[in-house]
Simulated scan of single mutants.
Amino acid sequence: MSTKKNLYIIKASGEKVKFSMDKVAASLKKAGTEDSLIHTVLQKLKNELYDGITTREVYNRAFNILKEKNSYSASRYKLKRAIYELGPTGFPFEKFIGAIFRHTGFSIQIGKIMQGKCVKHEVDVVATNHKETFIMECKFHSDPGKFCDVKTPLYIHSRFTDIFNFSHEKDPAHPAFNEGWVVTNTRFSHDAIQYSKCIGLNLLSWDLPKGNALKDRIDHTGLYPITVSTLLTQREKQFLLSRDVVLCKELTEDNFYLDHLDISGERKARILLEMKELCHFKKPLK
Score class of each variant (00 low, 15 high):
Q115Y: 06
F177N: 08
A62E: 01
I163W: 07
A12P: 00
K170R: 14
I113F: 09
L42Y: 11
A25M: 00
F239S: 10
K120H: 13
M1L: 09
S71I: 15
Y257I: 04
L49F: 10
I163C: 13
R267M: 11
E169S: 10
K29E: 10
N60H: 10
D191I: 00
T33P: 01
F63L: 15
L201Q: 01
Y195F: 15
C279R: 05
K44D: 13
I135S: 03
K112V: 13
K69T: 06
I38N: 08
I97E: 07
T54N: 02
M1T: 04
D143R: 06
K146W: 00
T161M: 03
D124P: 13
P284S: 09
S107C: 07
K80H: 02
G180D: 09
G222F: 14
C248F: 15
W206S: 11
E253L: 15
H174R: 15
M1C: 05
K16M: 04
M21P: 00
R56E: 14
A12M: 00
K46A: 00
H220W: 08
M1V: 11
F256W: 13
F93W: 11
T233V: 10
P144V: 04
L204F: 04
H39C: 02
V228P: 03
I135K: 08
F147R: 03
L261N: 13
N185F: 07
L204V: 08
L241F: 10
V123D: 11
Q109W: 12
K197R: 13
K29G: 00
Y8F: 12
R81P: 00
P144N: 07
P175S: 07
K283C: 01
L272K: 08
L285P: 05
F177E: 03
V119M: 13
S242M: 08
L261R: 10
D149K: 12
T104S: 14
E34G: 05
R270T: 09
Y224S: 05
I199Q: 04
H39D: 14
R56V: 07
V17K: 08
L66M: 05
T252G: 04
F19W: 01
I65K: 02
H130C: 01
F134W: 15
E169L: 14
D35G: 00
K4T: 01
T152R: 02
D124I: 12
L240D: 10
I108G: 14
R270D: 15
D162C: 11
A62S: 15
N185I: 03
I135N: 06
K120L: 04
W181M: 14
Y224D: 06
C198E: 11
K112P: 06
S189L: 03
L258E: 12
K283Y: 02
N255Y: 14
C148F: 01
A26S: 03
H121V: 01
L28Q: 02
S264D: 14
T104E: 13
I10N: 00
T184W: 03
I135R: 07
L273P: 00
P92H: 10
H130D: 12
K112W: 06
I218M: 14
I65M: 04
P88H: 04
L272H: 06
K30L: 13
G105L: 12
G211F: 08
W206E: 11
S158P: 01
D149V: 11
P284H: 04
V125N: 11
T55E: 13
H168C: 09
K151P: 00
T230K: 08
L49V: 12
A74Y: 03
